[in-house]
Design a protein around this nucleic acid. Structure first.
Lengths: 203, 203
DNA sequence: CGGATAGTGGACTTATGGTGCAGTAATCCC
DNA sequence: GGGATTACTGCACCATAAGTCCACTATCCG
């Protein structure tokens, strides 16, 4: 067979879709291998067990998300002359990106894994934690850069505001799904943008 | 046996703990009945199938949450003389309530069910949707009452701000779990409180 | 004392996660 | 061009899980 595995990525695609619509344990290996057109041992060749599948899925998801966030906020920086406008523009781009997804955001693996932690081993839980911490770091750094130039209009900790951006995105995805309102997430991002604006812009 | 079933509630308690820590399908009926000290047919006497268990769990969870929110925001109203202060005080109470949970919030069933929707039938999905809509209604009504007296400091839709309160709570729970930081949720509620304050209070 | 409520016990079916073993086709390295 | 490595297929097997069927029982209410 081919040297570079195309089936591995195919398995991950199918597994991710299943996990985000039914949860991890309801997504059976038999079902994955059937859809991927691969044998059972073909699956176990790539992933020692289901936990290894979870870890690979999560790692791939995080790499992809990071690249998207990098791109969006980099784009914000080029079109603005101060950190506040850059960040606000970045959030606008992110909102539009979410609005352009035809069926809404497919769901966040970090959220599903946080809600079924007992299923995974230490390494997956550590990876999930690291991901949330990296978002905290990303947004905290951006907000600190803003705070260096603009006075805070309320007594809140920068780090908590950074976490709130993540909260709104995760919560927005949940509500989008529960209500079947794909646009809700992008609207929520604009609301948190409104907060950042009010928090740093004197009226 | 006793007339009023104590075992039914016991089953629901154990099932809820399992679902919030491992997910729905990973929480086996065999495991539930073992922990509850009930026979398999004892389980199926109360719940036609696993879907009926999910529905009963969710209904009980929602009734409980509604009672808590009613209490918290009612308390806010008695200690303030205007709707803005009443709502801000309610959020402070809610934040404190979450901070006082020794192991943090146990998790939201609405979120887990939104993330494994394909597992449940129409009635469960409808109940989940109804729950999110009831939160939207609750917060929208409160915010509209405020908006009748205070001028909005930014161009945002009240309903989106209402949804944001739910977003921050759901997202706060996810991050609390992922990071194992029980206090994060209560901090997040104070940040959304800060937004409501800035949004209605002229500087 | 009859009927409803709240169960127990056991046998059975199908699906799922996972293991073990034997074998194969392509490719890379020397 | 030959041996190791990669990327698989096929089959048999095991324990656990959801769910069904049937027969039976204990308690309470009117």
């Amino acid at each position: 067979m081919a040297r570079t595995s195309s089936k591995r990525e195919h398995i991950l695609d199918i597994a991710e879709k299943g996990v985000l619509s039914k949860g991890f344990s309801a997504t059976s290996i038999d079902e994955i291998i059937f859809e991927a057109g691969v044998s059972k041992n073909g699956f176990f060749y790539h992933f020692r067990d289901k936990n290894a599948l979870a870890k690979a899925m999560l790692q791939r998801y995080l790499d992809n998300e990071e690249a998207i966030l990098d791109r969006v906020f980099e784009k914000g920086k080029t079109s603005a002359d101060n950190p506040l406008d850059a960040f606000l523009t970045g959030l606008t781009h992110l909102s539009r990106l979410m609005a352009d997804l035809p069926n809404g955001h497919p769901g966040c693996l970090v959220a599903t894994m946080a809600y079924s932690e007992r299923l995974y081993d230490k390494s997956v839980r550590a990876l999930n934690k690291e991901a949330v911490l990296s978002w905290r770091k990303r947004f905290t750094n951006a907000l600190k850069e803003i705070a260096a130039r603009h006075h805070l209009q309320d007594d809140v900790e920068i780090e908590h505001v950074a976490d709130m951006i993540t909260s709104v995105i995760e919560g927005g995805i949940i509500q989008s799904r529960a209500l079947n309102e794909p646009r809700l997430l992008s609207e929520q991002i604009l609301v948190v943008r409104s907060y950042i604006k009010l928090l740093f812009q004197p009226q």
